[in-house]
Simulated scan of single mutants.
Amino acid sequence: MTGKSTGVRAAKTTANRAKMLAAARELFTTRGYTPTTMKAIADEAGMAVQTLYFTFATKRAILSELLDVEIAGDTEPVATIDRPWFAAAVAAAPAEQIRLQVAAAATIYARVSPLLEVIRSAATTDPELAELWQTNITQRHLVQLHLAEALAAKTPLRAGITGARAADVALAVLAPETYGLLVHQRGWTGAEWESWATDALTLQLLPPGLSRGNTMATRGPKDAR
Rank of each mutant, 00 (worst) to 15 (best):
G7C: 03
A10K: 15
K12D: 11
K12P: 05
T13H: 14
T14I: 14
A15T: 11
A15C: 06
R17F: 00
A23S: 01
R25C: 05
T29G: 05
T29K: 00
T30E: 09
R31A: 11
G32I: 02
G32V: 02
G32A: 04
T34I: 11
T34H: 13
T36S: 08
T37M: 08
T37Y: 09
K39P: 07
A40Q: 11
A42W: 05
A42T: 00
E44C: 11
A45D: 01
G46M: 04
Q50C: 04
T51P: 02
T51C: 04
F54V: 09
F54H: 15
A57I: 11
L63P: 01
E65R: 07
L67C: 08
L67D: 01
D68P: 10
V69D: 00
E70L: 07
G73L: 00
T75A: 14
P77I: 03
A79L: 12
T80D: 15
P84W: 06
W85M: 03
A87H: 15
A91W: 11
A93T: 12
A93D: 15
P94H: 00
R99N: 05
R99D: 04
L100C: 01
L100T: 05
Q101Y: 15
Q101D: 14
V102H: 09
A105G: 08
A105Y: 04
A105E: 04
A106K: 01
A106F: 00
T107G: 08
I108A: 09
I108V: 14
Y109D: 04
S113K: 09
P114A: 03
A122R: 03
T124V: 09
D126I: 05
D126W: 06
P127Y: 07
E128F: 00
W133P: 04
Q134V: 07
T135P: 10
N136C: 08
T138W: 13
T138M: 12
L142G: 12
L145K: 11
L147E: 09
A150N: 00
A152P: 08
A152G: 09
A153Y: 06
